[in-house]
């Protein structure tokens, strides 16, 4: 029941901002409708399990932090340059809260094989272009190249959330999230410190394990090798190497783009 109410609030907030902004906007391509959900996949590329999990994760994230992070998957920007398309649309939609500009949109274009993280001014400090580029290259593009759209999008979102809000436990099972949000009002003052402590501990543990593990652990995201020159997949030392372009920042803050 509260889920429906929360969605309604999001939708109406988006609409209000969109109506305020839209007339000012002079886009020479059609702006897609303002999303009603945190995850919009017009291409059917995401599994419904991933869509549902992301939807509830992003909802609880906004509830906890006030930051609005959404995912929008389409086919193509046609002949409009990627950065022009995404910054115009993100602005037209008015993602985030008015005045704060605290929104992030992860755009993915399946037919174009391109993606972009559009970051509002209000979050530029927490999610600078360099960091967005890193997420784009190491998580999203890497996973897209291996054909795993679900992992690309959910991994990208998890990285975005924990970058902006290091204390956000993105892997907490839904049941735990529900339990902790139920007693929001009565949360003891030390709870944030405990959560921070746990997160910090895990972070150190991961760091230590990585050092100890050295070269032998993990597959490093995999790779695609070919010998032929000229192909996107040849050469380079890691996934997503050659065809990556860092974000523009000409409109609405910045972000990162990548292709696969």
């Amino acid at each position: 029941m509260s889920a429906i109410a929360a969605r309604g609030v999001l939708a109406s907030a988006l609409f209000a901002v969109a109506i305020a902004v839209a007339p000012v906007l002079a886009a020479d391509f059609p702006i897609p409708p303002v999303p009603h959900t945190y995850v919009t996949d017009g291409t059917g590329s995401l599994s419904s399990a991933t869509t549902d999990a992301l939807e509830s994760e992003l909802k609880s994230y906004e509830k906890q932090t006030g930051n609005q992070v959404i995912v929008w998957i389409g086919q193509t920007t046609s002949d409009v340059p990627l950065e022009d398309w995404t910054s115009t649309v993100a602005h037209a939609w008015g993602i985030g809260h008015k005045g704060k500009d605290d929104g992030v949109v992860l755009f993915v274009f399946m037919k174009d094989h391109r993606a972009r993280i559009e970051v509002g001014y209000g979050l530029e400090g927490d999610l600078p272009d360099a960091k967005a580029s890193e997420i784009m290259r190491n998580v999203i593009v890497a996973k897209m190249k291996s054909g795993d759209v679900d992992a690309a999008v959910s991994g990208g979102v998890a990285s975005i959330l924990t970058t902006i809000t290091p204390s956000f436990a993105s892997n907490v099972p839904a049941a735990d999230l529900a339990a902790s949000s139920n007693d929001d009002e009565s949360s003891p003052a030390w709870l944030p410190f405990l959560i921070f402590g746990i997160f910090f501990g895990v972070w150190i543990l991961v760091f230590v394990l990585r050092r100890v593990g050295g070269k032998g652990t993990g597959w490093g995201g995999g790779w695609i090798a070919s010998s032929s020159g000229g192909s996107d997949f040849s050469g380079g030392s890691d996934f997503g190497g050659g065809d990556f372009s860092a974000g523009g920042g000409d409109f609405g803050g910045g972000g990162a783009s990548g292709g696969w």
Binding site: D148, W219, G221, G222, I224, A225, S226, S227, F233
Partner: peptide, 10 residues
Amino acid sequence: ARIHVALLDD
């Protein structure tokens, strides 16, 4: 002919 090899970490 062209050959490609994809290594996945799935």
